[in-house]
């Protein structure tokens, strides 16, 4: 069983603000999903290597050569808020109000 409190904590890690209704719904749905998913715990997996790579695990390297890239103005053009060169975001460091 995943409680609503746990859902709230997980949602915080995932940067999702959920409504009370969503929390209740996900708590019950994920509990039943995980109940079913728990059958993988029955498998004897001692000594089995996890699949960390889908197919090939070799490193892929290339020459470190400079190639033309997209312009800064082009890259930021699709952002919801921009000054033409950078992304605009709300203040990251909040200042305390002076007494």
């Amino acid at each position: 069983m995943i409680s609503k409190e746990e859902i709230t904590k997980i949602a915080g890690l995932a940067m999702l603000e959920l409504s009370e209704n969503e929390k209740a719904e996900y708590s019950s749905q994920l509990s039943s999903l995980l109940g079913y998913f728990n059958e993988i715990q029955d498998l004897d997996l001692a000594g089995v290597e996890p699949t960390n790579h889908a197919l090939v695990a070799d490193n892929v390297l290339r020459e470190d050569t400079a190639v033309p890239s997209l312009g800064q103005n082009v890259v930021v053009a699709g952002a919801p808020a921009t000054d033409g060169k950078s992304y605009r975001v709300p203040a990251i460091i909040e200042t305390e109000e002076q007494p």
Partner: peptide, 28 residues
Amino acid sequence: KRRIILGTYALSSGYYDAYYKTAQKART
């Protein structure tokens, strides 16, 4: 959102070995 929550749970501290890592072994 449901899948993000489920995936975040499977990767979160305390559940990673039981879910994500076990699933990767079962994938093998």
